[in-house]
Amino acid sequence: MSNPYIPRKAIIESIRDETPDIKTFRIKFKDGSFNFNPGQFVMVSMLGVGESAISISSHPEDADKFVELSIRKVGNVTGSIFKLKPGSTIGIRGPFGNGWPMDEASGKNLLIVGGGCGQGALRPLILDVLRHRDCYGRVEILYGARTPQDLMFKYEHDIWARVPDGCLLLTVDSIPTSVEWKYNLGVVTTLFGKTLIKPENSLALICGPEIMMHFAVRGLLSMGFKSDQIYLSMERRMKCGIGKCGHCQIGSKYVCKDGPVFTHSDLIHEPDKIL
């Protein structure tokens, strides 16, 4: 029986800048294979500093070659990860959690709604749509960030936008004077008026700050989406990742084990959330 608190070793192969405070770290495991589902997360271990819960932002089919983690610098652990260079070793525990409902999503129209660094958790899903386009109906990607510089994966937006029977709608909260911006201005819910997807045979999949998800859910419900058609990837403090330490509980749910992806109806009666 192996100790679930001991991290595996992974090597950082390359690092790319996404935004002024987000980098994508491409890692490879030293000790064999790594399998995961889109929407699952790992605990990244910086021994001596601590651990942070980070969503996997690459596609499972690439996992034997690399795994990508898109990390925003917000605290001690992520700050120390940002100091690492290619070739450095980091610790990884996981993957943990359930991930996006891939079986349920199959054959359906998908309304993918991302906010800020929440787009990291949605990228594996978007990549799956691109690779297995026939498995899904219409796919619309709505993505909002604070400013144009804060949008992640800019180098892929053209590809996302060209997905057949789909679209990519971008929005930002504000535009610095020196920046050119030809897309929408306003919070991500202001894009809902531009979508063609109807609730029938559709799922909405959302990841972003909880306050943004709060408004997104309201918008979707008023569009006619049912509570159990709305999937949300939740953020809570995590320590163990395996349903033991208690920190990530939302009422009776463990985000690390029962989530991080929940339907809105799963959470509607739980306390201590902004949804």
Partner: peptide
């Protein structure tokens, strides 16, 4: 009550 914290100490 089993809840716990995990942290590193150098």
């Amino acid at each position: 009550c089993y809840c716990f914290d995990l942290y590193d100490s150098l």
